[in-house]
């Protein structure tokens, strides 16, 4: 089937399989920033923005984005670079597999929350699991990134 949607600020027309998830469709079309980690909406490494809200793309049928707006890490490269640099400055980027998903949640959080405290940050990022870092360094990096952005 054919879907038409806005992907990273450009209107695209994609031919998709009716049973495909958004994650599968994105990766099949060469946007590999979103990863597959769990396929049960439990890990967050597939996070993209659907109409500016973070969603696990493994749990969104590709067909559902017809007429909607999708943003992936490929569409927020400037922010991703700044977040990546903040993470690297803390050594918080280990295998990096969770980083693009975390970037997308952070991009959404910045729009939604004003000066969040640690508890708010933790709960906003709750869906973004990381198995490597133990989170503490990520939190240091997030605080730095938010501080530097203002």
């Amino acid at each position: 089937m054919t879907i038409v949607f806005t992907l990273n600020d450009r209107e695209v027309t994609w031919e998709i399989e009716p049973t495909e998830t958004l994650l599968q469709a994105l990766r099949r079309n060469g946007l590999v920033g979103a990863k597959e980690g769990c396929d049960t909406a439990s890990c967050g490494v597939c996070t993209v923005l659907l109409d500016n809200k973070p969603v696990p793309s493994c749990a969104v049928p590709a067909a559902r984005v017809d007429g909607h707006t999708v943003t992936t890490v490929e569409g927020v490269q400037d922010q991703a670079r700044r977040i990546g640099e903040a993470m690297a400055a803390e050594g918080a980027d280990q295998c990096g597999y969770c980083t693009p998903g975390l970037v997308m949640s952070l991009v959404a959080m910045e729009k939604e929350l004003d000066q969040p405290d640690d508890e708010q940050i933790r709960s906003y990022l709750a869906g973004n699991m990381c198995r490597c870092s133990g989170y503490t360094s990520q939190m240091r990096a997030v605080r730095k990134y938010l501080g530097g952005g203002r």
Partner: peptide, 16 residues
Amino acid sequence: SLPKIDGVGLALGRPA
């Protein structure tokens, strides 16, 4: 504490 050489590239979501 130099930044990890592949850190930013991975954050950008480049194929890796």
